[in-house]
Design a binder for these strands. Structure first.
Lengths: 339, 339
DNA sequence: GGTTACAAGGAAAGCCCTTTCCTCGCCTCT
DNA sequence: AGAGGCGAGGAAAGGGCTTTCCTTGTAACC
């Protein structure tokens, strides 16, 4: 690779001059030199070494984001919002997939710190695991102590700014709809227990149940992987345990889609035989049959807010922003047959 | 941020020793010093500056990938394969979304070069635009001239290794199924004309048509954005122009899903009234109603191959690997009503 | 006892830039 | 004519790390 020095030599000027021209510094440089340098840059196909620049300059310009998996639509949407703001602000973003592995998450925080990122965004559910939370917080605090910015989405107990999707409230709202429609035998297709997202949403559901003088017994909650196949498995288990189920609440849309597929296989029609609702309102939710009634979280905006928070001027006290959830009514919810 | 020198000072040793311990160099260091250093590292929460390391070391360890949009399932899958191989090989990957903007693509090549990446992977359709192709090639060649590795997926005319999805062949195969089933009025929901993916797939369709002594007149091809809404718009246009259509071939699954939604709105049932087929076999294809008959491209593997090619030992002559397409039979294809 | 050999740790050069501080030459003003 | 000012360009000091080459101290050998 051609270096600054190569260009300088070729143009017969000092490195300082080349640097000034290449970076458009305010310092005035004569037209003649400028031309010679630019020509040399062209001829050598010179591109400045970003790492050397970073070392020499003081300000950082990269932000890191840790998600469970970008190819999961939930995170894809968040990342999209994030990217938009990032490029508006001239920042490069490094995306890291933790695949819901706490250790990997820890490693990535370290890696991003090593990369000297300006901010770290953590998206995705937290874990009920005090040990892990503690060590993550320790790493995050160390990073923040040296001027790093941290912003998390949907995690209660972490250092840094936070944007909190209304998981509890959203679940409460959709739960109300279910109970208001008269469902008595309702099953919950849930994500793994140790995810805070699971417990938050479950809490909302329970609040709705209480309001309608119902309960959500443990046997009507089936925990599984937080994806389509997990949803299918949990639905099958629920149905096997109690064939009278008239409604299934899935804790996200992917799981709801898995539920739909099992129901179809078993010849049960939705919503006539069984109501199914999801959570998140991912784009595909309107295109499955029947279109999913679900809870919308403004994911793109959540991502955008998270990075904006991190990038905004250094405020000492962590801020938390709540974002609302709304129920999207489509076709997969109906009253039970025997009303 | 604590630096190497800080650690050295605190442990009362030289920077060289700290470096050797932190990086596990083969050089032997006494147990006592090692302990002192490790303790200092702990206390200072020291993390080596990755940029300084990169500058000081010779070997690179990051690869860059340019896709149209990671949140598009097509690229999400490719990226997943890519990421897998990358972490197996201890590489960090930087993902760049070009949003199908040629200029941005050019910029990103530059940016990745500046980041000193070991390899650049370009995924996603090429453009029929000689000027752009030429300048992209120039940049790529400059990069390769200095030891950079390039690998592209599905682009004919670019420097570097390539993995070529069988776009023409896949389209030919699905085309044959359509014509063999007896469809005579078939419309094509196509992506923008200037994408090579469009022309390749169209070519395959034409070959199939020829074999069945049919043609694909221009008025039966509607070009639109390469996504769900584009598919919906194109389908509507096609239907308006010729209500007798009995089959719609969409050039990818997203567009097919858009087609499905328009058909549903208009009260046409699939596949009884109209057959719909897609392309790519993205995960959701099996979950829409009716499940999509489509062409499968092994996307995860394509991503994995692309990065493997780039990372393998420096072979001078570019290699190209073809990957096969297969038709996945589901429920959205049937013979036309009037035999 | 003197030489050699080796092991353990340190000094310093180098990686590629940015930026501060200088220098030099010329113009302007009195 | 001399002082002062200013404008254009360069020298050099970092920035944080790796790694080569040295130095020093000790063990081993004849």
């Amino acid at each position: 690779m051609a270096t600054l020095a190569d260009v300088a030599r070729r143009a017969g000027v000092s490195a300082a001059t080349v640097s000034r021209i290449v970076n458009g510094s305010p310092k005035i440089v004569s037209e003649e030199l400028r031309e010679r340098v630019l020509r040399a840059v062209q001829e050598l196909q010179y591109v400045p070494n970003a790492h050397a620049q970073l070392l020499a300059r003081s300000h950082r310009t990269t932000v890191g984001v840790i998600v469970h998996d970008v190819s999961d639509p939930y995170f894809a949407e968040i990342t999209r919002g994030l990217q938009r703001v990032a490029s508006e602000q001239g920042r490069l973003v490094i995306i890291c997939n933790s695949y819901r592995d706490p250790d990997r998450e820890l490693e990535y925080v370290e890696l991003l710190r090593a990369q000297q990122v300006e901010a770290i965004i953590l998206a995705g559910s937290g874990y009920h695991d005090p040990g892990f939370t503690k060590s993550l917080n320790a790493k995050l605090s160390a990073y923040m102590a040296t001027g790093g910015r941290v912003s998390v989405v949907g995690r209660h107990k972490l250092a840094g700014d936070a944007v909190m999707p209304a998981n509890e409230e959203g679940a409460y709202l959709i739960g109300r709809e279910i109970f208001a429609a008269g469902h008595r035998h309702v099953g919950v297709v849930a994500a793994p227990k140790q995810l805070t997202t699971t417990t938050d949403r479950l809490a909302g559901l329970r609040r709705a149940a209480r309001e309608y003088r119902r309960t959500l017994p443990a046997r009507r909650i089936e925990y599984a992987e937080f994806d389509r196949d997990g949803g299918a498995a949990a639905t099958a288990a629920l149905l096997d345990a109690d064939p009278r189920l008239t409604a299934i609440i899935a804790l996200n849309d992917s799981m709801a889609i898995g539920a739909l597929s099992v129901l179809r296989e078993r010849g049960l029609s939705v919503p006539e035989d069984v109501t199914v609702v999801g959570f998140d309102d991912m784009p595909i939710a309107r295109d499955v049959t029947p279109a999913l009634t679900t809870v919308r979280l403004p994911l793109v905006e959540i991502g955008a807010r998270a990075i904006a928070l991190a990038l905004e001027s250094q405020q000492p006290n962590p801020r938390v922003e709540e974002v609302e959830a709304t129920v999207i009514h489509r076709e997969s919810l109906a009253p039970p047959r025997t009303g």
